[in-house]
Design a protein around this nucleic acid. Structure first.
Lengths: 243, 243
DNA sequence: CGGCAAATTGACACATCTCAAAGCCTGTGG
DNA sequence: CCACAGGCTTTGAGATGTGTCAATTTGCCG
């Protein structure tokens, strides 16, 4: 049985490689500080120098970069189970901020404890590095979307990704998932305007790809959507392999 | 004195943290297979499963993703000293390809040897992970450019970044550097058309930000360019710190 | 019922794309 | 040494995608 605290993280690691019971025990022995936060809260500020990283156990968060003119770009979305800012352990200074996209629950873990854990358990350390490397792959896919896909293909791609990632951690049933995102937030993800996000969403609705009501996204046909988005799940690395 | 083989890599690691002589010796003891390749060559194919990663010691390479319609997006540029595809060690399947943007020289190192090295030298391992994490930060900055900057600001930002990265490894003097990139390649970096890349470049020329002749970029005034691009070097992590 | 944020619509401006042609280099073969 | 081919750069004109601004509608919550 998975523990209530680090359960989702461990679950997510186990998608890619097996986690021994000693490794699981070591994770569960990590001291943490739990924190609830509300939609819209800033969790980590850009340019800050955190001494802890956090694991998201409930809700949605996003990495954001603010521009001088007040617009912003979301560069990543975190779901339950994600280690939200492990990179900060090495980078020292945050090059982006982290905000809550919904009410959420976080476990803060000290970098020093993490470092100790990773020194003691090299294979587990590799699994944690792996999650960061996958974040990078997800970022590259996002980048390709911004560079070479139309807004509607990009949105379709995003929804394909979120759906699969939610499924990995048990947050999607059938082809439905909870995604309580306002259109102006969607716009910040897609690098477009809120007005255009609205029109883009209407295109997908008109093609009968999905419904999106009260924050519940229901995909009509994942395969058709993936085809439209030119979606290739390789980058998500959902393969069980010794790493 | 830096060795001729792994010298640039070590140099680049030393920008962020000190490298002990034992660590340097361990790197230099790594078995490698040298390879020269010509501009345009594909170095690593998308969807392949390499068992080696490579260090670029001369020239320029890029990560690329191809779209169905034949267009492509470049998602990263590697300069001499960069570990071009360390992530492949953990990811197993390439989610992108790597091509030579100029004639270049590469050292291929077996993943098994790397794994052994990293097991033996944990601090050095952290430095290598660090380089991947910085790649991620560079990717995020690129993403923000695609999402929220105009083409001309994006190009300005790219040139600021390349200039600083080149300077780190001794490839830029004054505000000049060799960047033998065709406009259609530039377009693939910026996520625009070759025609528009040309017009974008003309904008920067008209503002007297640079000259770009025979593959030599000469910045007129880095600070003015950085101001125009809204460039903030935080993400490059050019800070010497124990990691 | 009123108020507020989010979603939607319309009209027009601007950035970028497309296609096509022309100009410019550079290397090569005659 | 010239002529030519091929790739790269530059220009033009019109189409399309996305942005801007402003107004209206919808839905939620007090």
């Amino acid at each position: 049985m998975l523990s209530l605290t680090y359960g989702t993280l461990i679950h997510l690691l186990q998608v890619r490689d097996s986690v021994t019971s000693a490794e699981r025990a070591a994770i569960e022995a990590l001291p943490f500080r739990a924190q609830e936060c509300a939609k819209g809260d800033q969790i980590i500020a850009q340019h800050s120098r955190p001494t802890e990283s956090c694991i998201l156990t409930r809700g949605l968060t996003a990495r954001t970069n603010e521009m001088r003119d007040g617009s912003r770009q979301i560069t990543a979305i975190n779901l339950a189970g994600d280690f939200v800012d492990l990179p900060a352990m090495l980078l020292k200074v945050m090059d982006h901020g982290v905000v809550a996209l919904s009410d959420c629950r976080l476990l803060f873990v000290a970098h020093s404890d993490l470092r100790e854990l990773m020194a003691k358990m090299p294979h587990l350390a590799r699994l944690l590095w792996l999650t960061m490397i996958i974040d990078g792959a997800i970022g590259r896919a996002w980048l390709v979307c911004l560079g070479r896909r139309s807004a509607s293909q990009h949105l379709a791609h995003l929804l394909c990704e979120i759906y699969l990632r939610m499924k990995m951690v048990g947050l999607a049933q059938d082809e439905n998932f909870h995604f309580p995102i306002a259109q102006h937030e969607l716009a910040d993800m897609l690098g477009i305007t809120a007005v255009h996000a609205n029109r883009t969403l209407q295109i997908l609705r008109a093609k009968d790809f999905l419904t999106w009501i009260n924050g519940i996204v229901a995909l009509t046909d994942f395969d058709r959507l993936a085809e439209y988005a030119e979606f290739d799940a390789t980058y998500l690395n959902m393969i069980m392999q010794p790493r």
